[in-house]
Nucleic acid binder design. Sequence first.
DNA 1: TAAAAAATTTAAGTAAGCTTAAAAATTAAT
DNA 2: ATTAATTTTTAAGCTTACTTAAATTTTTTA
Lengths: 219, 219
Amino acid sequence: MSVAVENFVKAIYKNNNNESNDTKPGNIAKKLGISNAAATDMAKKLATKHLLNYEKYKALKLTDKGEKMALNIVRKHRLWEAFLYKTFDMSLHDIHREAELLEHETSNFLANKISEYLGNPKFDPHGDPIPNINGKITTVDVSISLANTQEGKSYTISRLMSDDKEFFDFCAQNGLKYGNTVLVTKQFNKNKMTQISINNNTILLNEDFSKIIYANEIN
Amino acid sequence: MSVAVENFVKAIYKNNNNESNDTKPGNIAKKLGISNAAATDMAKKLATKHLLNYEKYKALKLTDKGEKMALNIVRKHRLWEAFLYKTFDMSLHDIHREAELLEHETSNFLANKISEYLGNPKFDPHGDPIPNINGKITTVDVSISLANTQEGKSYTISRLMSDDKEFFDFCAQNGLKYGNTVLVTKQFNKNKMTQISINNNTILLNEDFSKIIYANEIN
DNA sequence: TAAAAAATTTAAGTAAGCTTAAAAATTAAT
DNA sequence: ATTAATTTTTAAGCTTACTTAAATTTTTTA
């Protein structure tokens, strides 16, 4: 399948998983930077290939075949991210940019080699789960955003949900990294700010950031 | 530039370097598995982009700009080969196949990371030279094919010039590997065979193979 | 060197993946 | 509940990268 098809299927998958349920062509078009008309055309075409179900004016829905394809691409993307992060010590932003290209030109054979080499990791450096060889995500994510954490409790960072370079730069500078521990020292509910302590530094996060940093409580 | 353009330019570069001088569209078409007409079209198009000089019925010749592009792609290809070979212990055939895809989706940034990681190697696992960041090949190849070596002398394997899986499998099985040492025990000039000794094994190579294995005499 | 063979070019056409503009349907707002 | 705004779809058209078939030029060979 072409890069265009793979990206289209991936965009639908991500839209259905991460966000509100409005997976209409225009929405996907926006994410891919193409026109609504192009997205409608593509949707129709992929319906004939049984990758998704298409009904005029309705939301797009991947078939099992389509979802499997999406998960395969997501797997390759996240494996590359994990690999580049570990091997070349690249930033979260850089690994994403490179993985976005490499994911489409990676054989299953190579993907499996990368996975094995890394010890078949279950998460990438953003904390996103890596589908297994069969395109299944076996982990269950019960983490919550820092905005919803409780004062006085400690948490392990589990996910950095963004693709914004400035956010990642901020995280890297402050030790906000997958697996690291933070203590929530104060929730300023009125101002929607979260104060945390990490590496003996105090950081005040506004809602933009506290909402996209996910973590698990340490018992 | 598109994958099609990159492969076209690369094919011209390789044709001019490795073989006879007949770099006409039909020849490139054969290598790329496209029609002669398609190759002519592409040649004309690339001429307008100043990547090559095109004259009807004449051989194609890359401009400096075209050659620079070719060398950049070759660099990425060979860096990937070196990297995959080292990191995942893949076969010479497998690394070629994967590199053929990855080379087109690799940023200069990532290529430089790979190069640094490997210690800026000058050769890939086939013994082919890796162009540097500026697209220059600084090494001089004075190696000769095993067919042209002398009885009783020892050589270091410097290059395995092929892209045939069976040949690479044969090499791997017999320790015929870049950097390894062989002793030429006999040249059967009449029958065009070369007998070598490697790892205490004696191997009789026919001309097909002795001509594509290159080596340097050990003094 | 002239005819035959081979290669190259031109011409016409196709599929993928886009575009813009207009028409149709849905959704939101008063 | 209409009207207005938005979104989706349709229609027509473009570019890239191919194809096959025919015309032209070059190369080979007898």
